[in-house]
Design a protein around this nucleic acid. Structure first.
Lengths: 328, 328
DNA sequence: CACACCCCTGAGAACGTTCTCATTGCAAAC
DNA sequence: GTTTGCAATGAGAACGTTCTCAGGGGTGTG
């Protein structure tokens, strides 16, 4: 009769390779001593049987979790709809899969940062990826989680943090607008409580100050709806505006929507730029000039940092490169 | 000295409730007999200690997996960028989290369906959610996975399947276009190998036939780039076209992009409709008339079906309701 | 030859659940 | 009063891995 179709275990590999389970484990987990010929026999056996370690058993004994929680911070659950967030989470899931770790998605309401504690106290959580982090969020991270947290959006010496060079990216964009003759440049910022939004604003102010121009700043919140409304506010306050810098692509989708609906020519009357280079940025009318970021690389770095544990706490700044399209 | 901050285990609960681990397990997993007062004592103890079962241990002994794999089928990895897919995966992750199960995201290339076998043979996979399923994909599902698979995109008696009423949704949209005076209605279909795309096409043909109108069909692939190109093909072949039905919102984003760039008025010259009601559909210029679907509900149904195992194989059709905006 | 020393290995105990099996009561049926 | 049957419980073995510990066996030095 054929074997009952049970998945091969470490014991099976050990039996085939004629070694003990301990030795097989050492070889396959690649820690501890193992003679070259033993190593070969074990890997051959594993190969032959198509052995795959059981993530559950491994997680159980290692005390490590079994899923990684991606926590997206924001005032409304709609942040989860942002393509930038989607890209981060998607990339994280792809990186985790080979490790037998899954990804759970969670929204952290700004009003209730205490939820972070609950999240961390859950069993089986191998770590946290915080998206849209703020200092307040960082402060709410329970100490038990220290070392298993990666932060996207604010640097910190106590957790691994990965960030986008919003300052550099925004500077490049605003300088480009200036270089193409724009002199009355407005900005629709991101949510003011986000450090990355602050960096963009400072960069914007910096370029204008250097050029001797006054800032025109309206607060946004990274949503398209707010972007649209904010664009109208800009025009109401400063009717001669000739460029609008959006804090995110989604913001600028709203800006384009509002301007075009009001009969404003883009880029004829007003130039518009976004931030993130989401897939649809090339599909708007006119296509959106924006700044691109290595999202997959960021997610990969964050996941590996968390999965490798608390040894190293890297702080990396990823570049922001302008992408010139039709809108500005 | 204080306890060394170890998470409470079932044994702790049992000790506090003064019962055996077996009894505690019975109560908390809610299977097997337990006297009312015992039940109370155990739940009280669990509550008091803040007990959370360890998903890894549970998965290990139950033989059930530890993560759920969402497999998105398509010709290019760009399918993963589709907002519809993002919404499904996000909803799935949210449903899974309380069960201690994570979600992994995977792209299944049309050219290499055999990858599905590898995916299924991986340890720790509690089930598969197939997005964009086709009969060929279903046939490639290894028998060992039967009963742990949910299919989105094609019905089947052997796996749980959840589907959108593409036919009904498309019919409503096309009839709406007809009712508003459009008589030369073209369609840009989805990828031809997808059954749901086929249903939409049939519905489109059906309405036109009933009205005595000839179809104008160009094949798309659910991407914005192809949508844009296809729109131009439509105008090249049938210059008097007065409406274009896109198979997805993303397709129609491309259509809008192409038409507007060519100076066509929407909806003045040509009406455009989408499908899915993605968040950005309200933000295009003009805003996109489309059809909305209970994505979160679909994902929830699929996840619970897989997690509950092979007992029931529901086949559900979810409704598609038209959303009227400016584009048509 | 004896003594370290170091590379390598195996036995066996964890990890935290669930599940099978045997055993206890206790009530109803004979 | 004995038997049957069932609700309720506990003891203990799984599940598949990793890790600690205690040795073997070589080699080089004294």
């Amino acid at each position: 009769m054929p074997a009952p179709q049970r998945a091969p275990t470490l014991a099976d590999v050990a039996r085939v390779a004629d070694v003990s389970r301990a030795t097989a484990s050492r070889v396959l987990a690649n820690n501890g001593y193992a003679a070259a010929h033993t190593r070969d026999r074990v890997t051959a056996a594993a190969e032959k049987l198509g052995y795959q370690p059981d993530p559950a058993a491994r997680a159980l004994v290692r005390g490590t979790g079994v899923r990684l929680v991606t926590v997206v911070h924001g005032t409304s659950p709609r942040v989860l709809e942002d393509p930038y967030v989607d890209q981060v989470v998607g990339a994280a899931a792809r990186v985790c899969a080979p490790h037998g770790v899954g990804v759970a998605l969670h929204w952290l309401p700004t009003r209730d940062l205490a939820q972070l504690r609950q999240l961390g106290e859950q069993r089986g959580v191998s770590g946290l990826i915080l998206v849209n982090t703020t200092p307040a969020v960082l402060a709410a991270v329970p100490p038990t989680l220290r070392g298993r947290v990666a932060s996207l959006g604010v640097g910190s010496p106590v957790v691994a943090s990965f960030d986008i060079d919003n300052g550099g990216g925004t500077t490049a964009l605003v300088e480009h607008l200036y270089a193409t003759g724009r002199r009355r440049i407005a900005m629709i910022s991101g949510s003011s409580w986000l450090p990355c939004a602050g960096r963009s604003v400072r960069a914007y102010r910096g370029v204008l100050r250097a050029a001797g121009l006054p800032p025109r700043l309206v607060r946004g919140d990274f949503t398209a709806g707010r972007g649209r409304a904010a664009a109208r506010e800009v025009l109401a306050r400063w009717p001669d505006t000739d460029a609008i810098v959006g804090a995110s692509d989604v913001t600028s989708f709203g800006v384009l929507s509002g301007l075009l609906r009001d009969g404003v020519q883009v880029p004829g009357d007003i130039a518009v730029t976004g931030f993130d280079d989401t897939p649809l940025a090339a599909m708007t009318n006119p296509s959106l000039t924006t700044s691109t970021h290595p999202v997959a690389g960021i997610a990969t770095a964050a996941v590996t940092a968390v999965l490798n544990g608390n040894a190293i706490l890297p702080q990396t700044l990823f570049p922001s490169r302008p992408v010139h399209r039709m809108s500005g």
